[in-house]
Computed example of a mutant assay.
Amino acid sequence: MKNRIAATAAAAALALGGLAYATSPATAAADTIERSSRGCVTEPEYRRVKRGMTQTKVHRVFGTKGRVTTQGYGMKFRQYKVCNDRFGFVTVDYTKRGGKFKVTGKFAYWASEHSRSTG
């Protein structure tokens, strides 16, 4: 029952146009499930990704794994769909360090606005 209430509260907060950041494990789980069912990246999620973050952490923030566009020689490039923009995309560059792929760069393009990039 608690999980159902938390999921309903998270969904209501998102429906009202606000981003709700989890304050309890139940709300965090509901938020992750909702985002993963969307399969796209929002601008606030994009801004949360920083150099040095692991690929696993990025996927947790984005709520999607995107798709690999290029991989080889200890490097990987993944592309993710953006929310509410048919032609926009996010690309994150990863390099393998210490046995894990970590962010070395990122780029986002929202077709409805101008492009943004963050190294």
Rank of each mutant, 00 (worst) to 15 (best):
M53N: 05
T118Y: 11
A10Y: 06
S112K: 09
T8I: 11
M53L: 12
T32S: 09
S24W: 01
A108R: 02
S115I: 06
V58K: 00
T23K: 15
W110Q: 03
T42L: 06
G119Q: 08
G88V: 00
R38T: 09
V82L: 05
T95D: 04
G99F: 10
A29T: 12
T69Q: 13
T69M: 13
T91R: 12
R60K: 15
A9N: 09
G39M: 05
R35P: 00
E113G: 11
T70A: 12
G18F: 13
T27G: 14
R47Q: 10
A28N: 12
D85P: 03
P25Q: 06
G105C: 03
E43R: 06
D93A: 12
T64R: 04
G88I: 00
T104F: 02
A11D: 07
G88D: 00
E45S: 09
G119F: 13
L14V: 13
G88P: 01
A13G: 13
T54D: 02
Q55R: 13
A20Q: 12
V103S: 03
T27R: 10
G63P: 01
S115R: 03
V103N: 00
F89N: 05
E43G: 03
G52H: 08
T27K: 11
H114Q: 05
K81R: 12
V58N: 02
R4E: 15
H59W: 06
P44A: 09
G18R: 11
